[in-house]
Design a protein around this nucleic acid. Structure first.
Lengths: 190, 190, 190, 190
DNA sequence: AATGAATGAGAATTCATTCAT
DNA sequence: AATGAATGAATTCTCATTCAT
């Protein structure tokens, strides 16, 4: 139906944007994105009022996708360390499975074209993670810091870990474990 | 005199570039940079053959400046933990004292316009840090990982720490300490 | 209609380019060409990817036009001398009727911006002329030289003839005849 | 002495201009010419008020040099055909011996930056050639055309001949002879 | 005179966005 | 809605010429 079709075209644009931005950066021309998506130059602007809007929607969309990956099999009844480890593994898996998404997300994360509103939207739905991290760091060094600080530590360490895995693919398992241990020591050790 | 003048103009361009890139990103127009530096559009290109070259020289220059800040008072005879702490403090001080430099460095670090040669030049002179980090992590979790992994951990944690200090200036001292402790636990704890 | 319109704009650009290059040389700015064609600066580049491409297409186009002028009434069943004379007359007529085209063609002919491919394209379709010239010079002085040598002689002599006609318009007929006779003596005389 | 020195610098600039224009065309930057001549950017403009003036002086200089080559051993007491052949041989020799000069002269010949005054200056001193050519063509086809027409024919045929010699070096002698014969038939044959 | 750094008016090209069809 | 040609402001870079030293 029309609704589906419309969503399809919107998605095609977002996918094309992801792939092109991964390669060319945020300067990837809208015309190229449209072409890669199989729509006309003009159509792109019926789905997204302007390029900044496209970037912001893409940012939110990627955050949502990642969140869904995390919570699809989140061990709600597990102990915090299991939960943290689940989060860690999903981040690593997602990042390694979807290099363009990871690259594009990295670009959007540091871009000043992403509005405060989008950033806020990107943080919605992570409350369970915040609660888990609160418990994880409750007795650690960072017990007096907000849980977002610990979350950010986990995120940047997972990025470093992925970079290392890509550099030394044979050590993938060792890096995955070492990275997590480093995180755990950093935030949970008493 | 002539020498001084020439260096002055080159420096003025680099400073202007730093300030503009911090705000506008790497897309900051050369014309704006030139104007901010008080030179004509064309003059910029007598100092730097093209924009990429300007970016690369700026990258190397910032790396050198940071390295000099680190080694100006580096405790060569101290124990590794003192040395690591010195590095930590200089990074935090430099980053907080010079926000535009920090922002611009961050952009250049992830730009694909920085050549392998520039990256290499940016890494020269850090051998002592690598040696120190080797000792620091010799008995820790990461003892089987290259010391560059530990260095990167220190760098990203210092970035997070600075972000938090800017967000909560009143907690500056606490974050500075907590960040370092997290780093230490991550890489040095047995 | 749409087809017509598009072709119209492309032609307008080629015509404008011809007229401006005739006056200003190959350095004629694309902006001026666009304005003269009644299109925007940017539009020119939707029809021609870059200026070199415009020049190459213009070259080929002019060669085609000249070829069509020659073969529109080519006396295929005539004797070689009649055919050569026909070629001569068409060259002179075309060059005198379209001074900008002649001037621009002259510039393009000696430009190193014209690719080998374009040059080849410009030579396609002249096989009948080569064959005719072969017969013309078969018993002459140049019988052991390739027919292209004779063709070039005809071309440069026609250029000289046109220059002289422009200088002495009253002697037009005499020059046209004298030039052809000189050519004939040069290549066909035994 | 100062006079000599000044002339040296001027000559160095003209030589450098010749070599660069041969390769890069008339767009060769004055800065490059100055550098190749071993003088400063600014000095070039103390010898030549502007670039057009440099080009015009270069044009005249090359014409003078060629004229001197022709008249250095001109057979004044020879018969016209010997004289014409001498001219022909000097043109071919000079052009093949000095490719940059030939290329640059060719560019200047068709440039609209050469003034009428320069063109006139370039034609001074060729009176003996004009007189010779008058005799050569007195009974030929072109007897009612000015001798400049015949001279131009000789010039363009010598250019074609040189091009062919460069293309087929093994046939150098044959082309040199065939070219001259073609010229002779064109202008002198009754 | 000589120098060479400085100038700034162009030049080619790109690209987000509009709008007639 | 969809199309894609058209727009023109913006951008990087070049180069003849000037002028303070």
């Amino acid at each position: 139906m029309a609704q589906t079709k419309k969503t399809d075209r919107r998605n095609a644009i977002l996918v094309a944007a992801t792939n092109l931005i991964a390669i060319q950066g945020l300067g990837a021309p809208t015309a190229k994105i449209a072409k890669a998506a199989g729509v006309s130059d003009g159509s792109l602007f019926t789905y997204f009022p302007d390029k900044d809007d496209l970037l912001n929607q893409l940012y939110v969309e990627l955050k949502i996708e990642l969140r869904e990956a995390v919570f699809a099999a989140y061990p709600r009844s597990g102990i915090p360390k299991q939960q943290a480890r689940h989060l860690w593994d999903v981040l690593i898996d997602w990042g390694l499975d979807e290099p363009p998404k990871r690259r594009t997300m990295a670009q959007l994360n540091v871009s000043d074209r992403i509005t405060a509103t989008s950033k806020q939207a990107g943080m919605d739905g992570w409350e369970d993670i915040a609660a888990m991290m609160q418990k994880v760091s409750a007795k650690g060094l960072l017990k007096d810091r907000p849980s977002t600080f610990s979350i950010k530590i986990l995120l940047v360490l997972s990025e470093l870990t992925m970079d290392s895995i890509l550099e030394f693919p044979k050590e993938a398992t060792a890096y995955r474990q070492a990275g997590f241990d480093a995180f755990w020591n950093a935030v949970a050790k008493t």
